[in-house]
């Protein structure tokens, strides 16, 4: 399934719900979305991964790039909604030590 991104806002946080496959084809879609948000001054992003059906290293690279971009603008990026399969991939690549991750979308 091609990647779709659904956007919403709550306060200073912009939520990007990722739906579909985040792979070599989907990575540019996420990159473009992050670039657009940061260019508008939205530097606090929450990526909701609960709708992802697949992720590989190309997709992980796009998320790493997103974190680098928001941090370079004094922002941050939070990941929510990782299922066991996604969690396994993040841990395998030691990315769980880099990202702030929460099980659910509620920020408080």
């Amino acid at each position: 399934m091609n990647l779709e991104i659904h956007r919403s806002e709550t306060g200073k946080n912009v939520f990007l719900d990722l739906i579909g496959d985040l792979d070599m084809a989907g990575a540019p879609v996420l990159r473009q979305s992050v670039v657009q948000e940061v260019s508008k001054g939205n530097n606090f992003l929450v990526l909701d991964l609960s709708g992802l059906t697949f992720i590989d290293s190309a997709g992980l690279g796009a998320i790493i790039g997103g974190l680098r971009r928001v941090r370079s603008h004094e922002g941050d990026l939070l990941l929510v909604g990782l299922n066991d399969e996604l969690q396994k991939v993040f841990e395998l690549c030691e990315l769980d030590q880099i990202f702030n991750m929460k099980l659910r979308r509620e920020l408080n």
Partner: peptide, 22 residues
Amino acid sequence: PTESPERLEHERGLGLTIMREM
């Protein structure tokens, strides 16, 4: 290493690790 700020400069290079481990 993951604690290094330089880690974020590398968006690629995870594929071999994944293939070996999986």
